[in-house]
Simulated assay, not measured.
Amino acid sequence: MNQTLSAERVLADVAELIGCDPAEIAPDDNLADHGLDSVRTMVLVERWRAAGAEALEYADLAEQPELAHWTELLTGEAA
């Protein structure tokens, strides 16, 4: 859990990288279906590590590529 990352930031970061409006992403969507690939996922890992989620690993996100899972993992909040 990280205090510097919010649910809004996680959503905004994901939407930015896949080039869509945040409102187009439902919490339970598979982000790969929106075009999020492994390279972009690694960009997010590095971005979120720099924001304080030092223990975050690529596998943490790749195992379950859903916004709700990522938000809970990074913030402790529901998406």
Rank of each mutant, 00 (worst) to 15 (best):
P65K: 08
A55M: 09
D28E: 14
V43H: 08
D60K: 12
H34D: 07
E72G: 15
T75Q: 05
R47C: 10
A26N: 11
A50K: 06
P27V: 10
N30F: 00
D37Y: 01
T41V: 15
M42C: 04
L44R: 00
A32S: 13
M42I: 14
D37K: 01
G35H: 03
W70D: 08
P65S: 12
H34F: 14
H69Q: 12
N30L: 09
R47E: 15
S38G: 08
D37C: 07
T71G: 05
A53P: 00
A59R: 12
E66H: 06
A62P: 01
W48H: 02
E57K: 08
P27R: 13
D28V: 12
A53K: 01
N30M: 06
S38V: 06
A32W: 06
L56D: 05
L31C: 09
L67Q: 04
D60T: 10
D33I: 07
L73S: 05
D29M: 07
E72K: 15
L56N: 05
V39A: 11
G52I: 10
A51R: 07
A55W: 04
A53G: 02
A50Y: 02
D37R: 01
E63L: 11
A51M: 13
W48V: 04
P65W: 11
L61Q: 03
L56T: 04
Q64T: 15
W70V: 11
A59Y: 06
A53S: 07
R49T: 02
R49C: 05
S38N: 05
Y58E: 03
E66L: 11
A26F: 07
D37E: 08
E57Y: 00
A62H: 08
A68V: 13
G35T: 09
P65G: 09
T71C: 12
V43T: 14
A59V: 15
A26P: 09
V43S: 10
R40K: 15
T41P: 00
M42Q: 07
L73Y: 01
G52S: 09
Y58I: 07
M42F: 08
A26T: 12
A50P: 00
N30W: 00
L44Y: 00
D28H: 11
R49N: 05
N30E: 08
L31T: 02
D28S: 12
W48Q: 04
D28C: 09
G35V: 08
V39R: 01
R40M: 14
D37T: 03
L67E: 03
H69V: 15
L74Y: 00
L61C: 10
W70I: 13
L67P: 01
E46I: 12
H69E: 12
R40I: 03
A51S: 11
T75I: 10
P27Q: 08
V39C: 04
P65R: 08
L74P: 00
Y58C: 05
L73R: 02
E66V: 13
P65M: 12
D28F: 08
H34V: 06
D60P: 10
R40T: 06
W48R: 04
G35A: 11
V45N: 05
R47K: 13
A51T: 03
A68I: 12
E57R: 09
